[in-house]
């Protein structure tokens, strides 16, 4: 749902996976920005109703961009810089703290 502007400064790109699918994004992006740039709108389900949510504020306020990063849940995607090889997963409503999901 987001795309790079026409005259973006060239820069290296990084590979990562989201729910197992390989993707790339610009080095310097946050996890949330990298997902938006790859057309991912929803990255978590709420613990109450299970509704899909996606990044809303991009500045650490709303907690709607929560994702699982390399097995660690409840990370705010908009605050975490993307790294090469990151394994990003949808944050299920209630997540088993040992990495599994319910």
């Amino acid at each position: 749902m987001f795309r790079p502007i026409a005259d973006i400064k060239p820069g290296p790109s990084l590979g990562f996976t989201f729910d197992g699918s390989p993707m790339t994004a610009r080095a310097g992006d946050t996890v949330a920005a990298a997902l938006l740039a790859n057309g991912i709108q929803a990255c978590r389900q709420t613990p109450v109703s299970g509704a899909a949510r996606g990044p809303y504020c991009m500045m650490g306020v709303c907690f709607d961009c929560l994702v699982v990063i390399d097995g660690v849940g409840n990370r705010q995607g908009c605050l975490v810089p993307l790294r090469e090889g990151m394994r990003i997963e949808t944050q299920a409503g209630r997540r088993h703290p040992d990495g599994g999901q319910s």
Binding site: M1, F2, R3, P4, I5, I8, K9, R26, G28, D29, T30, A33, L36, A37, P55, Y56, C57, M58, M59, C78
Partner: peptide, 15 residues
């Protein structure tokens, strides 16, 4: 503001 942040920090605009 979120869209502005995506623009400033990642050069992204809604598609």
């Amino acid at each position: 503001g979120a869209a502005q942040i995506a623009l400033k920090s990642s050069g992204l605009v809604p598609s």
